[in-house]
Design a protein around this nucleic acid. Sequence first.
DNA 1: AGCTGTGAATATGTTCACAGCG
DNA 2: CGCTGTGAACATATTCACAGCT
Lengths: 229, 229
Amino acid sequence: MDLALTRLLSHLSSPSRRISDSAIRRLSRYVRELEAMEAAGEGTVPSRVLAARAGTTAAQVRKDFSSFGSFGKRGMGYAVSPLRERLSTILGVDRRWPVLLVGAGRVGSALFEYPRFRSRGFDFVAVLDHSPEKVGREWKGMRIEHVRDVARIVPERGIRIAILAVPGPEAQKVAEDLVSAGVRGILNFAPTKLRMPPGVAVNDVDLVMELEALSFLLSSGGKMAEGPE
Amino acid sequence: MDLALTRLLSHLSSPSRRISDSAIRRLSRYVRELEAMEAAGEGTVPSRVLAARAGTTAAQVRKDFSSFGSFGKRGMGYAVSPLRERLSTILGVDRRWPVLLVGAGRVGSALFEYPRFRSRGFDFVAVLDHSPEKVGREWKGMRIEHVRDVARIVPERGIRIAILAVPGPEAQKVAEDLVSAGVRGILNFAPTKLRMPPGVAVNDVDLVMELEALSFLLSSGGKMAEGPE
DNA sequence: AGCTGTGAATATGTTCACAGCG
DNA sequence: CGCTGTGAACATATTCACAGCT
């Protein structure tokens, strides 16, 4: 077997250590900045510059990349386009993802109309609710379907990612049904900590918690975010 | 000086080590669970139970509390109401916060109508935009004001927290104006890393990044979130 | 006996610093 | 000579384990 390929596989397949959550977010940010540079016609970029744009450090950039292989040229920096491509592949954003929206209330509605999802590769392919008033209704160019049909809809449309925008008390049960149907990643807007089996990824978005974090920082002396020193 | 008071002050005032971001989020979650328990009439709770409800471990709960003092009774656990009160004070959520919304577009609109903000103590006291079509308009029971008046509005209404929901390219400049006006905490919905002076807290909410994180986890072997052995 | 509070041990994440390639 | 890739040093966060109160 070819050496480079072996190396690549050993990077892609498991035994490499788990990538931290914050590292994943940084990859996302790198891709975004690289796209902007690509559009601006920049051919190469050193870690220092990419770091400045992404709000981190040069060492962090290089360390982040090193978990996946060796993308740069010493003395030269990184070639923008190939790097963007490889990071996109690693992130899994070099494709489109069919996404399920559960909950056609206020939050679900806002998310459905958020244009950046589609422009970044995430397409809503179903909207589910359980209210008899909503199910069957034509809604923003899509028909709202009943949550009870999730077991048919998810495999039928190849869905693996769902956005959960239902009231807190319903979230756990609905999430379990999603997982039974085949969903493996959930973006959870309910202020509820979901108990999920291994192999299911959950990302919580809790806007009140974000404001409360600011409240804490402002309340506790205002001494946070002290400059580097 | 009284010993307990000395101890209290040494906890409240600075030299205690900085609280991590994740610890702050957990505090927020504890408060929410404690409120539910209070409503359910539960008098005391051991760390083990609070941990289970908040999705963490008993040791983590105790460690989190220990940075702020000593709230429990050995052998008994924690008294629900007093604990909820003290944590609320620490988080700064034992009061109401006037909040500024900047950007009356789709995202701003959804945030303005999100009912949990008000119910959790955060009140929008101004909505700013710079579009001539929007400024001056009556909007959801509030009048949209011009961003240029931020330097008057922020001190006038005692605003320290702002929610930034403007397009990416405008975010940095608007954020600087907010800070000049006196804002010290920003919840940023623009997909832009803000460069801010020390003393200003920024929390980013980037929904695309959250989906991309799921995309990564699903793409990389699906071997994440492995059960604890 | 049950449970907290906490130092000590471990695990995880970030920064440093430098060897070595282009 | 600039810049990457990376082990080693450091910093931070989590878990363990147990002394000590109730």
